[in-house]
């Protein structure tokens, strides 16, 4: 592998990594604060992609479509939170796995009824359609570069939000001691709903940005969902910076695995990585409340 090719593959790995981070951040926040394990997080990703496509067709602009899809997905998610998930916070993980498994089936079928069984079209916006020469002799798709930058920007924003704002303070407090937060007169339910909406918006952002690269189709959420779970488990559930580190790690391992290893081994590489890390640290790399 030449140095130039190596650099390109690093970029690919990082780009997959930030995508996974967008997914993992929401999932891990929801888990850390509400103690809810949400299998339907992949459905929100799918919703984000479909809604971006729909709004893009309506407005003629990808960016406008994406901008509209984020709040729309968040609203859908908050409704689901209000109607169903809210009842699950005090249940054990098993009930949560089951109920959100049911949600996946529901969302998949709903999407199929609304948008039809075939894959849906969503194209790269004109300004980002070409390639950029990141290093001499390496043309890299501009859109993927944009995803990488957007993902890093969102990561920075999230860390700022959590470390420096009042909402972030409540999130941190909620994660370490729920009763205390509500005893201090904070509407914990509202906080939960907001956090859930935030996680959904991040998932929608990932889905919307993936849309032009991938087939927008029913079931697209499941393949990324499992990888996302691998990420948050490796990172330590509830830890946002653990999710970032793990997402980049998984992105790189997946990319280089598929290039360097034979096909069968490449498919197992990620799961092997996770098993090894859990043997070494049973609560992930950055355990919360350890």
């Amino acid at each position: 592998m030449t140095a130039a090719l190596f650099a390109e593959q690093v970029l690919n790995g990082l780009q997959l990594g930030v995508m996974l981070f967008l997914m993992a951040a929401g999932l891990t926040l929801v888990f850390g604060i509400m103690n809810l394990i949400n299998l339907a997080h992949g459905s929100l990703y799918m919703m984000g992609a479909y809604l971006t496509a729909t709004f893009q067709q309506a407005t003629g602009s990808f960016f406008l479509g994406l901008l509209l899809a984020l709040p729309a997905t968040a609203v859908v998610a908050m409704l689901v939170e209000l109607v169903a998930l809210r009842q699950l916070y005090d249940r054990d993980h098993l009930d949560q796995v089951l109920a959100t498994f049911g949600l996946i089936l529901f969302f998949n079928e709903l999407t199929r009824i609304i948008w039809g069984p075939s894959a849906y079209f969503l194209d790269v916006p004109e300004v980002l359609s070409g390639t950029v020469e990141v290093l001499p002799g390496i043309p890299y798709p501009a859109f993927r570069l944009a995803i990488l930058l957007a993902g890093l920007a969102v990561a920075a924003f999230l860390f700022f939000l959590i470390a420096r704002t009042r909402l972030g303070m409540l999130i941190r407090a909620g994660a370490s001691n729920r009763e205390m937060v509500s005893a201090l007169g904070v509407d914990i339910r509202l906080l939960y709903t907001l956090v859930f909406g935030l996680g959904a918006a991040l998932a929608a952002l990932a889905g919307g940005m993936a849309g032009p690269i991938l087939a927008v189709q029913v079931g697209m959420g499941e393949s990324i969902l499992i990888l996302t779970f691998v990420v948050i488990v490796i990172g330590g559930i509830g830890s946002v910076h653990g999710a970032l580190v793990a997402a980049l790690l998984v992105g790189l391992v997946d990319t280089f695995g598929s290039v360097l290893l034979p096909a069968a081994a490449a498919e197992m590489a990620i799961y092997l990585l996770m098993a090894l890390i859990l043997v070494w640290r049973p609560s992930g790399l950055f355990p919360v409340n350890a």
């Binding site: 169903a84 109920a99 049911g102 089936l105 529901f106 079928e109």
Partner: peptide, 9 residues
């Protein structure tokens, strides 16, 4: 599935 999913919940 649209019946089955909610039934599960």
């Amino acid at each position: 599935m649209i019946i089955f999913g909610p039934l599960l919940i």
